[in-house]
C-alpha cells in the first residue's frame, strides 16, 4: 500500500523570502521564471500549484 501525505504545502515559489516561513521556498524574482519553476515542482511532486497573489505560488498535495 502506498502512503502519501495529503493536504500539505510541499513548498513555495516566491519573489521575496520574507513572505514565506516554515516551508521550503524557492526565491525567483521574475514572474515568468516563477511560473516555470512552479510548473517543474508541480510535475515532480505531483502537487497542484495555487496562486496566493502577492508573488507567492504554493505547491499543495491534495
Amino acid at each position: 500500500m502506498e502512503i502519501t501525505i495529503n493536504k500539505v504545502i510541499l513548498c513555495a515559489v516566491t519573489d521575496d523570502c520574507a513572505k514565506i516561513q516554515g516551508i521550503p521556498a524557492f526565491i525567483v524574482k521574475s514572474e515568468a521564471a516563477r511560473q516555470e519553476r512552479a510548473m517543474l515542482l508541480s510535475r515532480i511532486l505531483q502537487g497542484a500549484v495555487h496562486d496566493m497573489g502577492n508573488g507567492v505560488l504554493i505547491v499543495v498535495k491534495h
Binding site: 508541480s42 500549484v49 495555487h50 496562486d51
Partner: peptide
Amino acid sequence: IMNVGLEES
C-alpha cells in the same frame, strides 16, 4: 471550483 496557480494550465 478551485485556485489554479499555473498560467499554462
